[in-house]
Write a protein that binds this DNA or RNA. Structure first.
Lengths: 158, 158
DNA sequence: CTTGTTGCAAATATTTTGCACCCAT
DNA sequence: ATGGGTGCAAAATATTTGCAACAAG
């Protein structure tokens, strides 16, 4: 597991915007950020940065493998740090909370599904859209929360 | 399996743009189209349509359940017809070919993965990015095609 | 110093909205 | 006829690019 990245390793100069953006993702405070989220965060820290720089840095970091770009069923890119461990996402449709998970069995079946169709799997993106059962979940439809109760005691294991 | 949709069932008037767009998707000629693809197609058929109408119709069809909107790892929406059968996608990273597939086992594991994390699964999007082994695949990296050979005789089944 | 990097503004790309005119019912 | 639907243009949203000024090495 990669814990810290060094800009120099990628031939990138250690500038304020880069260091701050890297710090933002490595700190783990926020895990899934849009370019605008990053921009706002830097501005709120009193850093004079432009949108263009944020986008350029995010793209450089993605190319360097420091960040990963995702699209959670929208036309807006979401970035997260690459800690070297693959994972998929589960997003709460009500409160927007994002959790990461990894299921070895699903991973394995994907490789097979691809092979069976004459494809060599290179990568994949899996995002589960669901209703969480957190107390503080700002659910829009109360049905969702009530419906969730049905599953409370029927937890299956693989 | 739904074979044909009737606009009137959704309270939508049978206008030229709507009928042509529906026909385009139902014909099955092209399965995964962006708004621009649809626009270009209509224009090439000599239909005087505007971009706004295309977007409005696509959105109406999505709300009616006629079409499904997807984002294949880009900031551009891709639409496809909803034939009532859920499926996931596998996209060739070289030639861009899109194939649909469905794996019951993966589907089942997703529900469990969500439950185990206290989520009630509502929907999901799974897209496999891979290298196909079609003869006519316009591969950008010959490595990809050579690498694929490794798997030619090692096809596993679930 | 020298070259990469930045902020700003303008340009692109994708999608949405306002509005007057038009056509399916 | 009339209310929904359309095309066009402008706006909104997301991202990229040109460029002169600037700062890291």
């Amino acid at each position: 597991m990669k814990n810290a990245y060094n800009l120099k390793d990628f031939g990138l100069k250690a500038t304020v915007p880069r260091l701050k953006i890297l710090e933002l993702f490595e700190s783990g405070e926020a895990q899934h950020l849009s370019a605008e989220d990053v921009y706002r965060q830097l501005v709120s820290e009193g850093i004079d940065v432009g949108f263009a720089t944020v986008y350029r840095v995010l793209t450089q970091f993605e190319l360097a493998g420091v960040l990963q770009r995702q699209y959670f069923d929208s036309n807006k890119a979401i970035f997260e740090i690459n800690r070297g461990e693959h994972h998929d996402h589960i997003v709460c449709l009500d409160c927007g909370a994002v959790e990461e998970f990894n299921d070895e069995e699903i991973e394995r079946l994907q490789v097979n599904a691809a092979r069976r169709r004459q494809f060599e799997l290179s990568d994949h993106s899996l995002c589960l859209y669901a209703h969480c059962r957190k107390q503080n979940c700002i659910h829009l439809t109360s049905d969702a929360k009530q419906g969730a109760k049905k599953f409370e005691d029927s937890d299956e294991q693989t």
